[in-house]
Design a protein around this nucleic acid. Structure first.
Lengths: 156, 156
DNA sequence: TATAATTTAATTGTGTGCAATCTATTTGAC
DNA sequence: GTCAAATAGATTGCACACAATTAAATTATA
């Protein structure tokens, strides 16, 4: 306790010191910053991520996409339906295992890739850090994310 | 172009290289990791942030809280109403400037602070990094967030 | 001092995130 | 081979985020 009677732990409850808030508010800023650049493609940021996953490999299951993006079917199912309505992807049951739904690209969805290449270029500048900084920051975040995911298992 | 006919920009559209996705998925993991620790308090993660802001200083306007958390009234108004219903905060119009709504704490809301001090302690371990790492990562994220915010103005 | 411009919250509508539950299908244990 | 367990996806319900609009109050300006 200091003279004012406040505990040493007080500084732990200050927003200014929160690593979690730095992550949270930066993530919100990322989504907001992408929005005007994705508007030309008619995509939201999570929809853009799904398209990126599909441009890397077509005909993935909902589960596979969900594992890559850490999103569950409650989030993906309606999102994928919107992409289907937009004419960018196809959804069809796997004939071998009918529990699975395979997500493919339409010609429009495939063609969008060329236009999408401008997005990371523009965003790279917006982040305002060089390749090396981005790389080390990315790996630090990912290792922290993995720590957080592991910690949830422990609490349960 | 390489032999396969793919452009050099291809690697820019790989999820694996996305700094934005590292931020996005880590932020989601943060919210998920906080959830079981905040369940005892009956708070969501954004609600917890609002309470932290109010524990630092009572009787702030919605606008002041929004500026600190980078959230607008569309997000805050319903969230604050839920905290009011939960008996943690008070909402009253400023008598001097009736456009403003002052947010205060109830006795219950004030008392919650002591119990909340366990949260950053538990989460500190979950993040799995030491104080210095957390500090530098936080400042890197904040400077990047500021860059992103500035970049949005430029696009508009 | 009228009134136009600005400011503050609230509201509306869309799109996530995620827990919990449900249905259909497949796999496993016996 | 049958039935229980596991798996994949869809559905439901709740709580954000945020753009766009609205309403009320205040400030600025002619």
């Amino acid at each position: 306790m200091d003279k004012a009677g406040t505990s040493n732990q007080e500084s732990l409850l200050k927003l200014e010191n929160f690593l979690c808030f730095a992550i949270y508010s930066t993530a919100n800023a990322v989504t907001r910053a992408y929005q005007p650049r994705l508007a030309a493609l008619g995509l939201t940021y999570p929809q853009y991520l799904v398209m990126v996953v599909l441009w890397e490999e077509e005909n993935q299951t909902v589960k596979a996409i969900g594992e890559k993006l850490s999103l569950d079917s409650g989030t993906l199912t309606p999102l994928l339906k919107r992409l289907e309505t937009a004419g960018l992807i196809t959804r069809r049951r796997d004939t071998v295992d009918e529990r699975q739904v395979l997500i493919g690209l339409t010609a429009d969805g495939r063609a969008m890739r060329a236009r999408a290449e401008a997005v990371p270029v523009a965003m790279g500048k917006a982040f305002g850090c060089n390749m090396d900084e981005a790389k080390s920051l990315r790996s630090e975040l990912i290792s922290m994310r993995d720590n957080l995911v592991d910690s949830i298992e422990e609490v349960k």
